[in-house]
Amino acid sequence: MSEPIRTVLVVGATGSIGRLVVSEALAHGFKVRALVRDQARAAALPAGTDLANGDLTDVESLAGVVEGTDAVVFAHGSHGGGPSVTEAVDYGGVHNVLLALAGRPVRIALMTAIGVTVHDGGYNRASGAHDWKRRAERVVRASGNVYTIVRPGWFDYNDADQHRIVMLQGDRRRAGDASDGVIARRQIAEVLVASLSSPAAARKTFELVAGKGPAQSDLGQVFAALQPDPRGNLDGVLDLGNFPLADEPVRVREQLEAIRNRTY
């Protein structure tokens, strides 16, 4: 996108990270629209937030929500519930927002998770969460929008001196616990919002953790040190090739192809 970003839609705005994204985006001078289903939970959002009623599982309810937006931050998550729920929310919510946009370009920041490429682990076999989050990443890459995909580590396990932002690529930390990396929720929100206006963050996929030391005053150089995803690739630049497209469900392949070709 060449036009400046003015209005940011926050998906998952009433969640523990989404609320911080709303505050961070407002502090950066963006107009913020929060996608909400529960008005009671939305009451806790900062003054100046534009509330838009919609349901991620209902694409028709999202048409008015996305209208006039320049960027979308996906900070939502299904928080378990089994493969059908993770498909409907973690993947389906992203897919439905893209359908509602009807090909209109926006800047995207998508939060998934560290370990998202661990396909054969026990957690993923039980929940399907990693696979459906990875499919959400793929549909964003296929959309042709400018994007940043952030895979945060374990929330709020930081030591008192862990303020430095560290961005990794390749998703090679696979312990499945906080030893894979920690990050504060406020740091996640900071990075998601900062990526929207940073040219250096375009087409970057990375794991986000905190290191010992002070916080950086400018994340531009941190973004710039990363490798971009190759154009046309469905996976992150250094991701393992352990999730063949040919093995995907037919509906997923068809949805990816429709998004890529804008034939929906």
Rank of each mutant, 00 (worst) to 15 (best):
S16A: 14
I188A: 02
V146L: 13
V8M: 06
S197W: 04
D247W: 04
Q169Y: 05
T112P: 11
V11E: 10
A71L: 02
Q255R: 12
A47P: 11
G15H: 03
M111W: 00
A201M: 05
I17H: 11
D120N: 14
A189H: 09
S217M: 02
R107I: 02
I165P: 12
D239F: 03
G93T: 04
G54E: 11
M1P: 14
R251F: 06
L196V: 04
K133Q: 12
R125P: 08
Q162Y: 10
A25R: 13
M111Q: 09
L219V: 03
L196W: 07
P230H: 10
L62C: 06
I17S: 03
P199T: 09
A210Q: 06
A88D: 12
D161C: 02
L196K: 04
G77D: 10
V250M: 13
V182R: 14
A142K: 06
V94I: 04
V209G: 08
G232N: 12
G82V: 07
A88E: 13
D171W: 03
V73K: 00
F243A: 09
Y91W: 12
G128Y: 09
E60F: 01
A202I: 01
G121N: 13
L9C: 03
S84V: 08
R134Y: 09
A100F: 07
R151F: 02
Q169V: 04
D218Q: 07
I259C: 05
G64Y: 03
H76N: 05
Q227E: 15
A13Q: 09
D131N: 14
P214G: 08
I188W: 10
V237S: 07
V140R: 00
E87D: 13
L35P: 14
L99E: 08
D171K: 01
H163L: 08
D70Y: 01
D159H: 05
T148I: 02
R135Q: 14
A13E: 03
R141H: 10
P83E: 15
G68S: 10
N261P: 07
S78A: 15
I114W: 06
A63K: 13
L245M: 07
A13C: 07
V222M: 01
V191D: 10
R134F: 03
E257K: 06
T148E: 06
L20M: 15
V8H: 09
H95L: 09
V252L: 11
A202S: 13
G18E: 08
D70M: 02
D235L: 05
A44K: 15
P199K: 06
A224Q: 13
R125L: 07
A71V: 02
A215H: 11
M1V: 06
L219D: 11
E190Y: 01
V182E: 10
S2I: 10
G93W: 01
A184I: 01
S195V: 01
D218W: 08
Q255P: 03
G211W: 03
E248K: 10
N261G: 08
V72L: 01
